Simulated scan of single mutants.
Amino acid sequence: MKNIESKILSVKDAKYFAKKRVPKGIFQMFEAGSGSNVTAETNVQAFEQVRFRPRNAVFHKSHDISTTILGHKVSMPAIVSSVGFLGVGHVDGETGVARAAGEAETIQFVSGVTSQPIEQIMEAATGPVYYQLYYVGGRDASAPIIERVKKAGVDGLVLTVDTPTIARPKDTLYPYRAEAPLGVNLKEAFKFIPQVWNKPGWLWDYIKTGLKEPQVAMGLREDGTPMGLFEGIAKIYEETPAWEDLPWIRKHWEGPIVLKGILTVEDAKRAVSEGVDAIVISNHGGNVLDGSVSTLPVLPEIVAAVGDDIEVLIDSGVRRGTDVLKAVALGAKGVLLGRSYLYPLLAAGEPGVKHILNLFHQQIEEGLAFLGVKSIHELDPSFVDLPDSWER
């Protein structure tokens, strides 16, 4: 019998198997999206609208898709982005992703609301790890977290700057709506039974972990114990990182800083003037402000505005290796993968993440062959056609 990961030939396959394994409310929590879901959908459509202009009658026996991102040599211009509470979806959690990212020779961004402590993640990691700093419980409560991740050996901080408040979930018709349990008790268990009776793999993993409420491993109460999942989520929105916080953060952190959630030339230029090391053009995968612009259409104007003054990364809507090539051709240093590795994790754990990263590697290399270039660094805007509607 084939392992689940061997059946995955695309991110759509992974989503299919994830829905089969994970309870409906848990899957909807991870699938996310907000409001009408128009931003999440147009993120994907934007990549589909871009067309290639290959150089044919060209053959190279080998292709170099490696690059350098934030000073780290990576095997491909695709890195693993931060998604919270991965352990709720699969017991392998963030440590499984760390091992997969290390094997793929790429970077892992770790969420500030991890289900596993950073020390455990760093023990599993063999590649660079960047920690997403949320102000869990306010700015002052974050100073000990910065010291903790510094001691654990993380390579950089990621400030996600597009979440000043909680977002409304994606509109889902009532008959198809499902909720994740709000706690671990008899009342919630009875409500949750219809969702788990036919999900034995997920349920057995959860039973093995002791039927405990998921915790925000890096968010500590005053007594030093980790916060529960819903308690920690609420604490995130008491205060979120802002421009004026950068001097304060630098008092506690001397390493690289990445700003994630940039969508305008104005913010990109300010990031340069503030001296951060990289920006991520991102709308949080369509999970925050419903109706935000898609990320790929604004990439060219932001790259044109900042040039080589700062590293420009991009996320939101990347589903295949050819999407990575389109982003690189338009000037991105690399892309961040979110749902593209999340679904394989939910479906098959660490082996699923390893499999999808290998699949991206293959697709990027094959894409270079079809484009008629030997190195990823040869790509430029002449290799793509953009829709007329993108003209500003």
Rank of each mutant, 00 (worst) to 15 (best):
A332G: 10
Y341D: 04
K354F: 03
A347S: 11
S340E: 13
P351A: 01
R339T: 04
Y343C: 04
L337Y: 02
L330K: 13
R319C: 11
G352Y: 02
L337N: 08
R320W: 06
I314Q: 14
L337A: 08
G317Q: 00
K326L: 09
G338W: 12
T322F: 12
I356P: 00
G321H: 00
K354W: 04
K333G: 13
H355I: 00
F360Q: 09
V324P: 02
G331M: 07
G331L: 05
L345V: 13
G352E: 01
T322E: 14
G338D: 10
K354V: 11
L336G: 14
G334F: 10
F360N: 09
R320L: 08
F360I: 12
G331T: 10
D323R: 01
R339M: 07
L359Y: 03
L346F: 13
A332S: 13
V353R: 10
S340L: 12
N358H: 14
D315F: 10
L330F: 12
L337P: 10
L330D: 12
Y341T: 09
I356H: 01
L337F: 03
L345G: 10
A332H: 06
G352K: 05
V353T: 09
V318L: 06
L357S: 03
D315S: 10
P344E: 06
A348H: 06
R320P: 08
G338F: 11
N358G: 15
V328A: 11
V318D: 03
I314N: 04
V335T: 10
V353N: 11
L325G: 05
A327D: 10
V318A: 04
L346C: 01
S340P: 00
R319I: 07
L346Y: 02
V335D: 02
K354M: 13
D323H: 10
H355C: 00
A348I: 08
A329F: 06
G349L: 05
T322H: 11
K354A: 14
Y343D: 01
I356W: 00
R319M: 14
P344A: 01
G331S: 11
D315H: 11
S316W: 07
Y341C: 11
K326T: 13
L346P: 04
S316C: 13
L337S: 09
S316Y: 07
V335A: 06
G331V: 07
S316A: 15
G317N: 01
L336W: 06
A347R: 03
G334K: 04
G338H: 13
E350N: 06
R320C: 15
K333L: 04
N358D: 15
L345E: 12
L336C: 09
E350Q: 15
K333N: 15
V328K: 14
P351N: 06
G352S: 01
K326C: 09
A327P: 11
L345A: 10
L357M: 03
N358Y: 04
K326E: 11
L346I: 03
S316H: 06
D323N: 05
L342Y: 12
A348S: 15
L330T: 13
L325F: 08
I356M: 14
K326D: 13
I314G: 02
A332C: 05
K354Q: 14
V335F: 04
R319L: 12
A332R: 00
A327C: 03
